[in-house]
């Protein structure tokens, strides 16, 4: 055997980093090299594969007992989406018109935009469990949600337009986060008080990050979201100001990275 192992494999108990990989010459042994390739493949596919929107829509409709329209951003496909974040932040004209017609004369506490973002696997793996945990909490808190919408090729700021068209005070966006090699399926939640389409800065957003099997549980994420919703409605703020207080109250909110 040409592999030279490392006598510190015991240190792996302290970190998920790829330590003690061993070597052959200056290079990675075959098994470690191919493990990395598999992790990268999973992350790449999470970005490029499409979630089963129809199945997710059906699931969301059953949980909310409301229709969940399937909409599009202005980014026509993944290639455009990845290079033109500005287009992913706006609803297509057809989608905006349809949503406007639906929302006429109604008012809600918040809108819920479900977006593919950068990880199909985040929605496929975590959306339905999260919604199942969330809806009872919303009901208990007496919060009034607009009909949820699902947006293809969606970025966080797309929810600003959804909230404006549905006459909601707050935008909540559930979206697939940028996949890491060890976390290709992370679901993020963004909350924004009184969003203004095209004008809302990132400092106005609160984020609950890393909802996934090996990260934050759907139950914990839901509780955090409902707390943020109540605080935001009462105090009419969101973002940095609200984050600071939540950290001191709850101790460990993780701020995620936008888009």
């Amino acid at each position: 055997m040409s592999i030279i192992g490392n006598p510190w494999t015991g240190l792996k108990q302290y970190t998920d980093a790829r330590i003690a990989l061993g070597r052959t010459g200056a290079s990675l042994p075959t098994a470690e090299h191919l493990d990395f390739q598999m992790s990268h493949a999973l992350a790449r596919d999470a970005v490029h594969q499409l979630p089963d929107y129809e199945a997710l829509k059906k699931g969301a409709e059953e949980i909310f007992q409301m229709p969940c329209p399937l909409l599009d951003s202005r980014a026509a496909d993944r290639t455009v989406y990845l290079q033109r974040p500005d287009l992913g932040r706006r609803l297509s004209r057809e989608s905006a018109a349809a949503l406007k017609a639906d929302g006429e004369g109604k008012e809600y506490d918040f809108s819920l935009t479900i977006g593919d973002g950068l990880s199909a696997r985040a929605l496929e793996g975590n959306l339905i469990p999260f919604l199942k945990a969330l809806v009872p909490e919303l009901t208990a808190a007496g919060l009034k949600s607009a009909p949820p919408v699902m947006v293809r090729q969606c970025r966080v700021a797309c929810g600003d337009e959804v909230a404006a068209l549905q006459s909601s005070k707050i935008s909540v966006v559930l979206i697939g986060e940028r996949p890491g090699l060890s976390s290709p399926d992370s679901l993020g939640v963004y909350l924004t008080w009184a969003p203004e389409p095209g004008e809302t800065g990132d400092d106005k957003r609160n984020c609950i990050s890393n909802i996934r099997g090996r990260g934050m549980t759907p139950e914990e994420g839901s509780r955090k979201l409902v707390w943020l919703l109540k605080e935001s409605l009462t105090r009419k703020i969101s973002g940095v100001a609200l984050k600071d207080e939540q950290q001191s109250l709850e101790g460990n909110t993780i701020m995620g990275e936008l888009d």
Binding site: A17, R18, L21, R23, A26, S27, F36, S39, G180, L181
Partner: peptide
């Protein structure tokens, strides 16, 4: 230089300890 090129905090990939060995060699 990062273990296996995989930054588990910043969620991106860069060069590894092994890559430096390769380049020097």
């Amino acid at each position: 230089g990062i273990p296996g090129g995989d930054d588990i905090m910043l969620n991106y990939q860069t060069t590894s300890y092994h890559d430096a060995l390769y380049l020097r060699r």
